[in-house]
Design a protein around this nucleic acid. Structure first.
Lengths: 225, 225
DNA sequence: ACCTGAACACCGTTCAAGT
DNA sequence: ACCTGAACACCGTTCAAGT
């Protein structure tokens, strides 16, 4: 009745958001309810409302929390290196929190970490000599690629590495009639199901394509710092 | 008590899915409930369960319905033309049904329209002379770009054309301190807020970049049909 | 200041019944 | 065969109270 589970860390907006993201990671965003969240924090559901306005603010908050975990590019650094590092980090983070990409669609207001991330990205390109309009093009192209790749990875009918991937893909393919989907079946049997294939490896191909194309469109080489 | 609202079209899986997509279009996927869906069809919620197993099957179904509305590329046609037409159509359809991209993440099992779409895309590239591995690269790259662009368009803090876009963006920018987000503010004031700017126009730039890069990597020109 | 019990208007889904 | 009323175990959120 007195002393609870030891030292009770007081609730805070930050603790609420971290716990919310942890539930989404472990059991999916569908399992994230005010009640499950309160349970996880050892508190009653109504206590949460003292730290966040409502569930929508929690969803906004955990999306921004995910963005805060993506490595920021450094304005002034080599733009190719910085853009590659940022893109890899973003893909990595989004793979660990696949629910974030699905939430993006319904959240209109970007949080501070998201804005900081965009600012650093734009700044890195501008400082490397990209004109404003090419920066806008590059920004849209790079982010589209990273987000879209994350969507595809999240939609893959398996999680956890190439080995289980092949098993599950093989199982699905068994139900596809080759007369109906000839090219899909060919791609699966002759390529995707080969040992060693990992969809994740496709990421570097597209990233190279995009960075090469941007380099070719950059007026002249950036300053040698 | 007798005759209802006239000729009662009998319920069917197809009618259920179309009505579900219409509700998601009009009021967002959050407003799509078994009860609101039944209401829209002039029926009681429990009747739906005679045509779909549960709500999850409805969500799977409307994602596949959206895919069925994307123009299929034609294997044997000029691959650049076919890929461009398909990409534009996909972006168009996803803009009209922005909730679809958010659902993709949680739906593991692709429906028949989705499989048919993938099959036609792969087939068009293969028939144009793309080796299997380059086809896999191209497929992942093109789809990532299209999906990711759709994510960004859906996350824009406005809907409906460049004019209202500028207004809302200006309103948001007013709250951003230039000392905190200097590059973001510069990009907004010197580019995005200029009359005539439309984020949607960025689509063609990235699409050209990708198609050019793929053409450069294609072993030799495809057969002259 | 921070937490909470009880209550309200919702959810998806099951089950047993109606025609 | 197709539809449904009542019920169950859930939701997010409000309100009035507790410490």
């Amino acid at each position: 009745m007195s002393k609870q589970v030891g030292d009770r860390v007081p609730l805070s907006r930050d603790r609420v958001l971290r716990a919310a993201a942890a539930i989404a990671d472990a059991r999916g965003v569908g399992a994230l309810t005010m009640r499950s969240l309160a349970d996880g924090l050892g508190v009653k559901p109504m206590s949460l409302y003292h730290h966040v306005a409502n569930k929508d603010e929690i969803l906004d908050g955990i999306v921004d929390l995910v963005f805060s975990r993506i490595e920021l590019p450094t304005p002034g650094g080599d733009w190719r290196h910085e853009m590659r590092r940022r893109a890899r980090s973003a893909r990595d983070v989004l793979r660990r929190h696949p629910w974030a990409i699905g939430l993006l669609e319904s959240r209109a207001a970007p949080g501070p970490a998201t804005l900081r991330h965009h600012d650093a990205t734009i700044g890195t390109l501008r400082r490397a000599g990209f004109p404003v309009d090419l920066t806008a093009h590059a920004f849209a192209l790079l982010d589209s690629y990273v987000y879209g790749f994350a969507v595809q990875e999240a939609a893959l009918p398996f999680q956890g590495g190439p080995d289980t991937a092949a098993d599950v893909t093989a199982e699905i393919m068994r139900h596809l009639r080759p007369e109906e989907y000839p090219h899909l079946v060919e791609m699966a049997t002759e390529h995707v199901l080969r040992p060693g294939y990992d969809f994740g490896d496709e990421f570097e191909f597209g990233l190279d394509v995009i960075l090469d194309a941007l380099a070719r469109r950059l007026p002249d080489d950036g300053p040698a710092t």
